[in-house]
Design a protein around this nucleic acid. Structure first.
Lengths: 112, 112
DNA sequence: AATATAGTTATCCATATGGCTAAGTATATG
DNA sequence: CATATACTTAGCCATATGGATAACTATATT
């Protein structure tokens, strides 16, 4: 638990569900109301709302209500944090792979 | 559920836990045995093993047993799939942001 | 004013998750 | 051979998750 980033628990959990990923994807092409977002999902509204709550409390989306309509939009930051974490991890083992490649290369050239 | 990638359910779920992320991080600096991996985690071994099973069944790590010792290593592919998904989503709304910026810019220049 | 619309709240339910202890198996080591 | 080591398996438990229905609130519409 070296450099534990609590936000990642919540972000990765949010992304672990296909309904929620679909919502993120949909919001990529612009704001949408709760009903609009719900349409493609074969699920009762309260069930769907729970997914929106997971996304919003996790900071991946935000929403505002005008009259009786709630409109949602994406919040870029958290996705970026998740991507950065993965990217850094990959950088580490890619670094290792590179060093290993160099090592193999050195062995090879020493044999000449 | 347009372009639903089932692997992502499993990968993001695996990454949603700090213990599992720590294991991924640790394996970034090379192979390790189950006991070695378990040391930093204040948890009974069977509990810890469950995390390894989540990682392995999700394809994020693999392991082989020699004698009574099981050694684990990272499998790059799944992390890459997860990073790619996020990256593509970001590209979409960054594209939008860019178009919006252009639009605003055009409005501004029309005012000249 | 009456009705339709768009969420929201309150429960409920089955299953999954993340932790535990106790006991078992297989391989080293003394 | 006896014992220690390194997992494994089996079961238990509390809480979280993802779904549902029923009833409610607050705005539009007619």
């Amino acid at each position: 638990m070296d450099n534990y980033i609590p936000a990642l628990d919540v972000v990765f959990h949010a992304l672990a569900d296909p309904t929620r990923r679909a919502v993120i994807h949909r919001l990529g092409s612009g704001e949408a109301t709760v009903s609009e977002l719900a349409i493609p999902h074969n699920m009762a509204l309260p069930s769907f709302m729970k997914h929106l709550q997971v996304l919003e409390s996790g900071g991946l989306i935000k929403s505002h209500k005008t009259g009786r309509v709630r409109t949602c939009q994406i919040v870029p930051l958290k996705l970026a944090v998740a991507e950065t974490w993965i990217s850094k991890e990959r950088a580490v083992w890619e670094g290792r792979a590179e060093r290993l490649a160099n090592y193999v290369e050195n062995i090879a050239s020493e044999k000449k």
